[in-house]
């Protein structure tokens, strides 16, 4: 499932990365506001869902090569943070949905978590 499909499922606003949404296909997703947990428990090609919008989220993504970030609860990062993502070719989306619902929609659609437990619909 590529980011375009994910964006449509969540009716998400594209903050950056319109041109590459079709090309990016996350294999896993992780929902967390704790960046240390994201560093510790994610795998490669992971999409991060978070309510944090500061620069450390982009740094975290850079360190572990996250596929993209979806900001939940309608949280919008600053222009500086969006510019950081642009420099790193990191797609950013924003949904008005809370974290739980966002995770539920993507998990139900077949996007696996990082624990290795397979999603029910594959």
């Amino acid at each position: 499932m590529n980011l375009r499909k994910i964006q449509q499922l969540l009716a998400a606003e594209i903050l950056w990365g319109e041109e590459i949404l079709d090309l990016v296909e996350p294999r896993y997703a992780c929902g967390s506001d704790l960046m240390s947990d994201v560093l510790a428990f994610t795998k490669e090609k992971t999409l991060l869902l978070t309510g944090l919008t500061n620069a450390q989220v982009i740094r975290t993504a850079e360190m572990i090569d996250l596929s993209g970030i979806i900001f939940v609860r309608g949280k919008k990062p600053s222009q500086e943070v969006i510019a950081m993502a642009q420099e790193r070719n990191l797609p950013l989306l924003m949904t008005k949905l809370p974290l739980y619902e966002t995770c539920g929609i993507l998990y139900s659609a077949g996007l696996e978590g990082c624990s290795g437990l397979p999603s029910r619909r594959r």
């Binding site: 960046m35 947990d37 994201v38």
Partner: peptide
């Protein structure tokens, strides 16, 4: 607030 300080 920055996503750290969780003891990890």
């Amino acid at each position: 607030e920055m996503g750290f300080g969780a003891g990890m």
